[in-house]
Structure formats: structure tokens, C-alpha cells
Write a protein that binds this DNA or RNA. Structure first.
Lengths: 138, 138
DNA sequence: ACCGAAGTGTAGCCGATGCTACAATTTTAA
DNA sequence: TTAAAATTGTAGCATCGGCTACACTTCGGT
């Protein structure tokens, strides 16, 4: 049943991975900037639990791809493109999180799983999750 | 709410990625071997839509990590460890797929999304999905 | 003003996942 | 049987995401 039409599906998954970390980063940058006024590399380093070098390189890719701007020894800011992506990612994340809670999953697991799942959920599935929650509440 | 206790969650997601492709491979190998008797590199190359070199390297890692065995110019076979992983992956995949269908998602999307989601669903969430389906049917 | 601490940058390493190009082997067909 | 086609192996390259070690800048406190 799932032998999949060769490349189609799997290649989509792999290209998702390319943007997955970028989305995690812009989401984190938006979050940190909102809560503390500005976002520095060290904040991201702590948030993700990786070295500041890893963060520095990731920021470089974000800047290269037009998601963020920064200056030497300065804080990181999102471009409008980056803000758009962050907003969408946060919305998706929130839907998946609330959906998992509605499914009966614990808060801890919902939080963990939603971070892993949010990048792989299509619009159609997101919509189905929302419909389910409306039915539950309505 | 989701600022996450620093490294914990995210590092889990990243280590998941390390085993994700391995799982995709063993799942595909089991599938192909079941349907055609044996699995060769070219089958995987076509299945995933990647070059035979990429497959060759991936197989090398599977062999190194004890999931598969092979000989020069020969087919690929799963070890018992590989078969165990393949079976578990297939089961998870099937649950997620059927759950998405039960949620009201189209077959096409369910197939695509389930491949992306299967590696990021915890046992607890899988259980919740099964409970949901039982409730639906019962 | 200065020194130490904190933060950032840079060099250089590794493994994973992808590729092209070319060599070697195996299969298939004439 | 033997030549062509299909398959697999190898060499070499790129990017991404991770690291340590060391250099540099900025910030805070005395």
C-alpha cells in the first residue's frame, strides 16, 4: 500500500528537513525577541543546547537566505520574510500541540511531539486537526 | 508556553533524525524484499529517488550499524535487528496512516504525511491514536 | 579607566547525505 | 561466446549541522 510513487513523497520529506532547522530557528528567534526584547546568539545556543559556533553558522544561513539580519557582535533580527515564517510556524506548532492535548496526550508529550511533528504536517491535515478540535468543543 | 527546557526536546528531535533515514531504509528494504523476493541497491535508488551512490553509502552505514548485510555486487538483506526495526517502523507507519484516514484526511495526504510523521510520534501519542480509532469503530 | 567575564568570530575537524564522473562487475541478449 | 546493458563500486566534491580551540569584541564592575 505504501510503496509510494518512487521519489515524490520521500524527496518532499528530505527537502522538508532542509527548512526544518531554519523554521526552528526563526520560531525561536521570534519567541526570544518577544519575551526579552532582543535575541542574541547565546540565547539560541542555550535554547537549542548547541554550541555558539553551530548557532553562528545557522544564523549565517538564515541571513544568506533572507530570513534574518545581524551585525558583528550584534543581536539577531528577523526580516519580514523571517517574521512571516515564524508566525506560520508558531501557528502550526500551536495547532498540533492543542490537537495532541485534545487527543488525550499528556502536556509533556504533547509539547515534545508537537515540535517533532509540526514540520511534517500538511495543510490538509492541519485543517483536519482543527475540525476535530471544533467538533470536540462545539 | 513552549519555550522548552533548553536542550532536552530539541536534542531528542535531532537525534531522531540520525535514525530516521536508517528506519526509512530498513522499512523499504523489507517492503521490497517481501514484494520481489530480494532487494538490490537499484531498487532503493528508485524508491527514494536518489543516486545509487547515496544508496550505497547508506547501506554501508546500515551494515556498519548491524541492520543489514550485503556482499559486493550482491543483494541487501536485513539482520534480525534490521527486521525488528523494519517491523516496528511499518507498524508505526500503519497506525499513523490509518489514524490520518480516520481523522478525515485524503488517502494521498495520509500516505505522504504519515511518512513524515512516523518518526516523530511517541509511544504515548501512538497509543492515543489507536484509542481514537477504536472509539471511532467501536 | 581598566580588567575580567561574557559573548562572538574564525579556523579546522568530523560524520551524514547528496551529487557527477569514471571504473569494475554482472546480466542479458544477440 | 561475446558484446552491450544494467548494476555496483570508488574517487572526489559540496552542503549541513555538529564540535573544540583559540582570537577578538563588548559589557560590567571596581
Amino acid at each position: 500500500m505504501s510503496s509510494s510513487g518512487a521519489s515524490g513523497t520521500h524527496s518532499r520529506i528530505r527537502s522538508d528537513h532542509a527548512t526544518e532547522l531554519a523554521e526552528d530557528y526563526v520560531e525561536a528567534i521570534a519567541e526570544i525577541a518577544e519575551s526579552s526584547g532582543l535575541c542574541r546568539a547565546v540565547d539560541l545556543s542555550r535554547h537549542f543546547g548547541v554550541s555558539h559556533v553551530t548557532v553562528s553558522k545557522a544564523i549565517g544561513r538564515l541571513v544568506r537566505d533572507g530570513y534574518a539580519t545581524t551585525e558583528p557582535y550584534g543581536p539577531i533580527a528577523l526580516t519580514s520574510k523571517g517574521q512571516r515564517v515564524a508566525k506560520a510556524a508558531k501557528a502550526r506548532h500551536e495547532i498540533v500541540y492543542q490537537f495532541l492535548l485534545a487527543l488525550g496526550v499528556s502536556e509533556k508529550t504533547a509539547q515534545t511531539d508537537s515540535e517533532g511533528l509540526e514540520h511534517h504536517v500538511s495543510q490538509e491535515t492541519l485543517k483536519a486537526m482543527q475540525d476535530f478540535m471544533e467538533k470536540e468543543e462545539g
